[in-house]
Design a protein around this nucleic acid. Structure first.
Lengths: 337, 337
DNA sequence: CTGTTAGCGCGTTCAC
DNA sequence: GTGAACGCGCTAACAG
């Protein structure tokens, strides 16, 4: 059906090697034969088979990415950075979306073994020690994004510092009753998300440093999502002594908090301060105070690290920390006295 | 380095064919040898090479998707549907994000020729007639999603009807000065987006049908984006005789309209009604009246059509229309009299 | 400069 | 049931 390199060689009256050299822009072809071959290629509408090429080369020019809930705005933005960096490097991106524990495990196990990609990017999922070992056994270059694991390279932020930054800001505004809304512990365990947990740690540390004892009833965890956060926040805000400020582990959850405030007729920021995390696109629209992290760049940098390791697998383990920044907008204010 | 089928055969003391048969669950292997082979596979940590497999089979078990601006919420949701359907069919998804005209053309030309996928999904981009021909020449099964082209299968909605539906609703609420904000015409031309243009048609038809002459100055076009829509809307609302209702060709643009109203201290919906399109996730949060379309399902259905064509390329051209639905929320109301 | 040949790892014939 | 050839389309190494 489709023309092969052999057809081209035959019609052009040259050897296979010559056609291959033309395709690969090898300088060892005379201008005349090159032109002849190119003409035949055009005439036969020949396209080199990528698969055969990959097979022969032992390279797929493809990078796989495993991402949990890849419709989350923060994940999408990372993916955009990944795709952009990959495309400019001539690589294709294959995406595996993970929304269940079983799929997470399967992907982590099978994707590296399938050898369909030259490298693997893992977003927001921290492989367990045994998974790390299995990963390393495959010899496939791997880079984590927004996740951390011993002996695996990665690009991330200091989530503990981020949690502290948000909390310190609320404290500086005079708040002392500060609540936290983050991902479900069971969920974290199941996927091994780590960022929400670390942000919680930063929150607790900041409270302690300010002489405010963290209160268990001020810390709520639920499935990552606006609706779940809304329910948790409503519960929190109906406590006899409700928080005057809430720190949500993500902007999506912060939106749920804002909904809860609306439900309870609490004015934001007058009666309740709210701070989120990530600075996703809608945060600006909502005037949401948040901690900004460089999502697009995290994808770009992850690809850079990965391509470096693909080129030279012996590259020493690199781990990169991206900066974070407090973006003060309209959902936080000094507590009314 | 990595074990091959040959190693397994040697260690297990069987022939290559037998190992292959075990891997592919062929019934023509005795229980005893099968177990022996499986043991060796486990011992050697052997994984069949996906590339060699694809090469030998002539199938990649991969589907490529070309998507413009794949961070747009509506596109992401379609992609999620695609990935889910693909994964359950054992296919992998490779994504090409398109944000410039040049890249659009390159992708449309090169992706099908590269033969890295068994099929191609194209989101929101309508290939030109010559591109359709080139596409068909590659013999690669193609399905369009949210786009239409002669002689190419696809799943879409009736955008004209959608535009009419939104406009008729505003008319029914008593509005007669109704504006429209959509994608840039030049931009449409360049990417050949069609949905915004069709929604505009529906808008005009509905006006005419109600005896309201469409006014040019009420129709504005800009780059797809919240900020751009905000500027356009502000301009529109500062007209001497401003519209009392605005129909935005997407929810993202409707958000820009809401911002513009905020800028001008116009109360929504009391002084201005706003309706969007798509019913993306935040629409509910914002209480935005909109036209809902089934984004996730469009991806799923696109995959179904595609897999059918991959299995049998002679399948007759199918084109599927998904339903739309008006979701009335809080940004529209009967005009004050 | 150019033609030829040997694999790349696997599925699929065939004979046994 | 099982083992041994052959071929998928291409690249790389070699011989000319």
């Amino acid at each position: 059906m489709a023309a092969t390199i052999r057809d081209v060689a035959r019609v052009a009256g040259v050897g296979l090697g010559t056609v291959s050299r033309v395709i690969n822009n090898s300088p060892l072809v005379s201008q005349a034969t090159r032109q002849r071959v190119l003409d035949v290629i055009a005439e036969l509408r020949y396209n080199p088979s990528q698969i055969a090429r990959s097979f022969s080369l032992g390279k797929t020019l493809t990078v796989a990415t495993i991402a949990p809930f890849f419709t989350r705005p923060s994940v999408v933005e990372r993916l955009r950075g990944i795709e952009a960096a990959l495309a400019s490097g001539g690589y294709a991106l294959v995406v595996f979306n993970v929304e269940t524990r079983a799929r997470r495990d399967n992907c982590l196990r099978d994707v590296p073994r399938s050898q369909r990609a030259d490298g693997l990017l893992i977003i927001s999922l921290a492989p367990q020690p045994d998974e790390v070992l299995a990963l390393q056994e495959t010899r496939l270059p791997v880079v984590l994004i927004d996740a951390y694991a011993d002996s695996l390279p990665g690009v991330t932020i200091d989530d503990v510092a981020g949690g502290a930054l948000a909390t310190e800001y609320l404290i500086a505004l005079g708040h002392r009753r500060i609540g936290f809304i983050g991902d479900l512990i069971a969920d974290e365990m199941s996927f091994n998300f780590t960022s929400s947990r670390h942000r919680l740690e930063g929150y607790q540390q900041a409270l302690v440093a300010a002489g405010i004892p963290p209160r268990d009833e001020y810390q709520r965890h639920g499935l990552h999502g606006r609706y779940e956060a809304r329910v948790l926040a409503r519960d929190l805000l109906e406590l006899p002594e409700p928080p005057t400020a809430l720190f949500a582990a993500s902007d999506t959850q912060a939106m749920g908090v804002l909904e809860a405030a609306r439900d309870l007729n609490l004015a934001v920021p007058d009666q309740l301060s709210v701070i989120g995390f990530d600075d996703i696109d809608v945060a600006e629209y909502l005037g949401l105070t948040t901690i900004r992290q460089l999502l697009f760049e995290s994808g770009e940098r992850g690809v850079e690290l990965l391509l470096k390791r693909i080129a030279n697998p012996a590259t020493k383990l690199e781990r990169e920390y991206l900066p974070i920044e407090l973006i003060a907008r309209g959902t936080t204010r000094r507590i009314a006295r």
